[in-house]
Amino acid sequence: MITVLLVDDHPVVRDGLRGMLNAEPDIDVVGEAGSGAEAVVMARSLRPAVVLMDLRMPGGDGATATGQILAELRDTHVVVLTTYDTDADILRAVEAGAAGYLLKDATRAELTAAVRAASRGETVLAPSVAGRLIRQVRGGPAQQQLSAREVEVLGLVAQGSTNADIGRRLHISEATVKTHLLRAFAKLDVSDRTAAVTTAMSRGLL
């Protein structure tokens, strides 16, 4: 069973998400929080597999809460679910270590798939968000190339390693692994691990 903590300052949004997710046989919403600060406290207590995190909330923003949660709970994954898709918001969430970034116009199928993927340690991006990340990392031809560390991380993904495995192997945090993956996704113009590995191989990068 995939345990989920919902974080959003609007009760009606949480109600809708709870009903949607609890209808899935393998997903269980175990708690709700209305602010980033409350989310950190509840995550410590509940230790959910996945946190669905809004970004802009009174009483503590989602990006800061994401960083705090992931610094303490190695087995918890955060998926940002927000109405905001500005470059600054996306980068703050990615740098905080979020496993995914979805917009609130996501379909039920997209949302449940993202929760399941995040619980497995995979990274998920809404297509429009991937596009914005691409524009962030592509300042010119030289910047389109994968860094040595991004190639190293993708090589370990190709071998079947999880983000946690990669972090231990390279002596970096799991949040840092996710950041390398998201930047690689953007440079390769893909939105998941499988496509990233396939594309990198086809380009002779792996």
Rank of each mutant, 00 (worst) to 15 (best):
V29I: 09
Y84I: 11
P11R: 00
A113E: 14
M20W: 09
G155S: 08
G155K: 05
T76N: 02
G139K: 13
T112K: 14
A142M: 12
A130T: 03
E150V: 01
H180P: 00
R47Y: 02
G31R: 06
R116T: 11
R135S: 14
Q159D: 15
V13W: 01
E38P: 06
R203D: 04
R183L: 11
T162G: 02
A93D: 08
L52Q: 05
G67M: 02
D9T: 01
M201T: 14
L6T: 04
R168W: 00
R193Q: 14
L17C: 03
A71E: 15
V51G: 00
L170W: 03
S173Q: 08
T86F: 02
L154S: 00
L6E: 06
Q143L: 13
S173G: 12
V197C: 08
E152A: 12
A164M: 10
I166P: 05
G121M: 01
D28N: 15
R183N: 12
D87P: 12
G121V: 00
V79W: 02
D75L: 12
T82Y: 00
G131N: 12
G155R: 07
D9R: 06
Q145Y: 06
D85F: 07
L91F: 06
G139W: 11
A71R: 13
G60L: 09
A39C: 11
V13P: 09
V7W: 06
L103V: 12
V41R: 15
M201V: 13
L205N: 04
A65D: 09
